[in-house]
Amino acid sequence: MLPDYHWECQFTPAIQLFLLRSVHPWRLMRVGLFIPCYIDQLYPDVGLATLEVLESHGLDVHYPPAQTCCGQPMANTGCNADAKPVAQHFLTTFEPYDYVVGPSGSCVAMVRHHYHGLIDEAAEHRLAAKTFELCEFLVDVLKVTPPRHAFPYRVGLHQSCHGLRELRLGPCTEAQVSRVNKVRVLLEGLQGIEFCNLQRPDECCGFGGTFAVAEEAVSCMMGDDRIADHQQAGAQVMTAGDMSCLMHLEGLIRRQRKPLAVMHVAQILAGRQPQQV
């Protein structure tokens, strides 16, 4: 059985923080940096940006080099037998850390919500309780003051689905539940930033892992539609909490030579500027 969809309520970050703080001196918390495989190999700067953001808050950040992948590609294809050893490897790699933080809502959702049956149940709960997506870690656990550096661009915020609907990083248009948008609140303080009003603020980009290739036609149409929405809204920079969505969207943008810069939210938070606007 899959984990209950709303189980996250049982582990409110505030409670975790309280518990952890009572055991650890604040700055001695060991944070395991989780850099998903495709970011490690293809977008190293997103990894660096994540590291810089975390370190700027004085955290003791470790990157366990034994890490590989969370196992999502296999699990989402239904190949749980192949996902199991990978999940087990992830667990072992991150066992020594108080927190596991990564710049991907999708990979974090995999670890937090979909390890049931892949690893031992007690370990599953332990791991789930300490694994966070970067933005929610900054907002919920560290409760940081959002950065104030200059980012004078019109930004289209793509809300990656797994962050939005599995981790509940923000409100979504179809649910009548008010939630803080944890990605947006971090960006809102930037000088000169302007958010574009999208016609469909939380529609899927069409990446979907193997879907991107297996259902290439629909996937690319979905991506094109997202890009068109950001363009009609006047976006100069498109950003998201998940590089996988952006890899797909950027692939289309570059092929079509569209004037739209693509940045992971960690890069913006770390003070990077768009390469071309």
Partner: peptide
């Protein structure tokens, strides 16, 4: 079941 990006919107509506 593979004609799906697992975006989760169906579950919410």
């Amino acid at each position: 079941p593979f004609a799906c990006t697992l975006c989760g919107s169906c579950t919410d509506v």
